[in-house]
Design a protein around this nucleic acid. Structure first.
Length: 423
RNA sequence: GCGGUCGUGGCGAAGUGGUUAACGCAUCGGUUUGUGGAUCCGACACUCGAGGGUUCAAUUCCCUUCGAUCGCCCCA
């Protein structure tokens, strides 16, 4: 058996990659309009960064990281991990490069691969790609709303329909502690009836029980976090909604929305769309006040808010909704040379055309003219230019339109300018 | 980590315990000695994911393994 790609990874081949390029170009262009600037951070980081940043007890850190040892000191080898998400690395770079020292708030975006050791299924891979943004330095609710709006705009400008935005406030750690206590009290009488997963969630993270599909009924009537938000959190959450309404971003409040990463405070949100098997979340994010300080080691704490969107999921939804992405034609002109002298001239003209910006191609398999015509047709070339000995001797070339079959003769020396006019 | 389904040429897809593994698409060649998208003709799998077992005989039965896919958990 020849070597195969690792499970859960994929080769993006010509034919498919154009869609990726289009989607990524959309992301970059959108970020320009919203004034977010690109940042590229390493694909692996010290394992500790993710342990501290993502959260020691999250599934991601507990069982989904690709961690490896590297040479360090004899006694203390270094432990690195492939990044399972984008925020921790960006926060690290923000702190390490003292970007907080700049006068304005920092608005950054990234596009790149992430890695999680999980069982693949529809819309889930071990190497997947995210487009994400992070805004550091402001607690203003309008920036929460801006982040949500950027993600929503991304989907809508790609032509994706029926994306819903769920938002919630997960408060501060202080209100969350009170709420978790109340939640435990609520579930205590029925604790034995909870599923085994939820039994363990009861102690570790009771908020997750509300997410459980099996225990929906038991969770009915449970208190919501919104009832336990303090004054500041309530005001912030209301203001985020105001700004969303002002921007005409549709949303719904989902008090049961809990995210899988520990670092969120205040705003949490998810984008959902149907069409990828059992998966409906295509992106999400939230505010993470305190995370920067935690990663910086207590100094230079700065508030932040961001999002991460799954690119595979975006493409799957585009496919599910039959969205046609604009595609570029491959060739303007296909050159056919008949005979040795003509072929040499074709090589010369090919280069001249390419230098002039014309997408041009020729045959490299020694095929007959008919086969070359077919090849030109497959490439969807707009024109075919045929050069035989007789044309060559007159210093001319025959140019044929593949759309209507019309042919005309051009002077060889005018081929480049002629093609530039036609395309 | 657990469970379901699947694995035949570039792609799609039949098939059977036994000396030629259908068919369709695509490709290549010819019909048209310099012209595509139509028709017709022809070519194209020492081989049925890999390894092992049962058998006189296995692509077809059994086991293992790898992979794909879908789902659970969780998430992008």
């Amino acid at each position: 058996m020849s070597i195969q790609k690792p499970k859960g990874t994929q080769d993006l081949l010509p034919g498919e990659i154009e869609k990726w390029q289009y989607v990524e170009a959309k992301a970059r262009e959108l970020c320009k309009r919203f004034n977010y600037r690109e940042i590229r951070t390493p694909i692996f980081e010290n394992t500790e960064l993710f342990q501290r940043g993502v959260g020691e007890t999250t599934d991601i850190v507990e069982k989904e990281m690709y961690t490896f040892e590297a040479k360090g000191d004899r006694n203390k080898p270094l432990s690195f991990s492939l990044r399972p998400e984008g925020t921790a690395g960006v926060v690290r770079a923000y702190v390490e490069n003292k970007i907080y020292g700049e006068p304005d708030i920092s608005k950054l975006f990234y596009i790149g691969p992430m890695f999680r050791y999980e069982q693949p299924q529809a819309g889930r891979y071990r190497q997947f790609h995210q487009f994400g943004i992070e805004a550091f330095g402001s607690v203003d609710p309008s920036i929460d709303a801006e982040v949500i709006a950027l993600g929503y705009t991304f989907y809508s400008e790609l032509g994706i329909q029926n994306v819903t935005v769920d938002i919630n406030s997960v408060g501060t750690p202080a209100c969350r502690d009170i709420y978790k206590q109340k939640l435990k009290e609520f579930f205590t009488p029925v604790k034995d009836q909870l599923c085994s997963d939820c039994q363990s969630r009861f102690d570790r993270n009771p908020m997750r029980i509300l997410d459980c599909k099996k225990d929906q009924k038991l969770g009915e009537g449970a208190p919501t976090i919104l009832e336990y938000l303090d004054e500041e959190c309530t005001v912030h959450f209301a203001a985020v909604q105001e700004h969303l309404r002002a921007m005409n971003i549709p949303f719904q409040i989902n008090p049961r929305l809990v995210r899988g990463l520990d670092y969120y405070t205040h705003t949490a949100f998810e984008y959902k769309a149907a069409g990828i098997g059992a998966i409906d979340t295509i992106g999400g994010g939230g505010r993470y006040n305190g995370l920067v300080g935690q990663i910086a080691g207590g100094n230079n704490d700065q508030p932040g808010v961001g999002l991460g969107l799954g690119l595979e999921r975006t493409l799957l939804i585009l496919q599910a909704q039959n969205v046609e992405l604009p595609s570029e034609k491959l060739l303007d002109v296909y050159l056919i040379g008949l005979g040795e002298a003509a072929e040499k001239e074709v090589t010369k003209q090919l280069q001249l055309l390419r230098l002039a910006g014309v997408k041009a191609e020729k045959d490299y398999l020694g095929r007959k003219i008919k086969a070359q015509m077919k090849s030109a047709d497959r490439y969807k070339a707009t024109f075919v230019a045929i050069l035989g000995d007789d044309e060559l001797s007159r210093g001319e070339i025959t140019v044929k339109s593949m759309a209507n079959g019309e042919q005309q003769t051009m002077l060889l020396e005018q081929l480049v300018t002629g093609m530039l006019e036609k395309i």
